[in-house]
Amino acid sequence: MSDQPSDDAPQDPAEDAPEAPDAPEETAAAPEPAEPAPAVLPEHEGWLAALAADLGDDIVEAVSNHGDLVVRVKREAWHRAAEVARTRLGCEYLSFISAIDWLPRPDPPNWDPDAPSAPVQPKEMTFGAAGGEGRFQVFACVESTDDVTQVILKTDVNEQNPSVASWTDVFPGADWHERECWEMYGIEFEGHPHLRHLYLPAEFEGNPGRKDFPLLSRETKPWPGLVDVELMPGSDEEPAEEASA
């Protein structure tokens, strides 16, 4: 373990190189949602124009991210965005609907940030492509099977009372995705015929997808690779500590 940094040293440029183009773009795009145009690839401009023709000012921000068009719309325009994508862009295929909780994850107790394979996350709230506002974001991907049109739509929802319009009347497949999103993130979908648990038992309480919902196995064991030495019945603690060391 101790000689790892020296091994890494010659490869450091390779590690830093991919970060360099990304980092300024991220920081520059987030605080200035006023100028989305330069961030969009030429092949996405047509799709964005088609969306903007109907949605207008409801588009908060749009960027091209690794070849995908990511459009963030206002919460009120979420349902109309689906209709427009379906009718104007021909995106009849619903890939998924889900949510992101941007809250930094509180570390579990006993979590050792220096453990070699314990992934440590940053402690400040930052947002991804097309920015964000507040803790929860609902995002979805719709595609057209006739050409390569694919749009990722995002919208911010209120943290205290997260709710957004349901897409079930536009895409019938939204039913299950929204039920999953509702049980995992506690986001209400207005107009959904019957929001009920999909994966979890009906009496389950809480929203496991949220970052502040503890993962029980990590509460007891900080990271999965940790050697777990159990005491033999009748033995003292001494030999167990030797074994783990």
């Binding site: 490869q11 970060e19 990304d22 991210n65």
Partner: peptide, 26 residues
């Protein structure tokens, strides 16, 4: 690649044609 993999900040959506259909990771 570096010995310890650190993926810079960013997001990516990749979907492929799996035997059962469209499989994607965001």
């Amino acid at each position: 690649v570096p010995r310890i993999i650190k993926v810079p900040a960013g997001e990516s959506w990749v979907r492929v044609e799996n035997p059962l259909g469209e499989m994607g990771y965001y």
